[in-house]
Design a protein around this nucleic acid. Sequence first.
DNA 1: CCTACGATTCACT
DNA 2: GTGAATCGTAGGC
Length: 195
Amino acid sequence: MVRLLAEDVVDGARALLGWTLATDGCAARIVETEAYGPEDPGCHAFRGETPRNRAMFGPPGRAYLYFTYGNHWMLNVTALEPGLGAAVLLRAAEPLEGLAIMRSRRAKAARDRDLLSGPGKLAQAFGLDGSRYGLDLFDAASPLRLMPPASPVAEVRVGTRIGLSPGKGDETLWRFADAERLPWVSRPLRELACG
DNA sequence: CCTACGATTCACT
DNA sequence: GTGAATCGTAGGC
């Protein structure tokens, strides 16, 4: 049962590839995601609900943002029904609109491919922080929103998730990328997804 | 209260 | 490829 639901998060992570993330002034096509599910030791929700992760236990499709390494914000999309802690981490995107704003926010990006090629970079380029916590990303009127692709991603690559300690899901192939837009991803992926 | 560590990034070798 | 920076959160005492 829970296993089945976890697979739904994984499907969700794959399905978010190709969607457009938009704010006022900036838009980008999602090229890399990771799934974090219930019963997943790598998931912040694994040890139960806390003030920090409460968004994951609420309705799906909301913004779960958290701060880590003393510097970086990460943007996730909550998943599954309320009560089950799960989310999809948005790891990388291809910039579409608002390049000048993104470059100004990320002065250290030497090339445009450095603007959104990592979860911390993506949040910085979009100007995201805790003030966006809990926003409904599937509401077209939301200041931070997701818009569906004109056509689904044709080919998906899979790989292990990044930054997890041994034994905490580091072997699980729950990282996904748009195989046709690999120049924009944060790090190389292992292989082609089957199915 | 105190400590350990992290869903990372950047500078440097 | 390697290591430091940096601080909020969570968990233990």
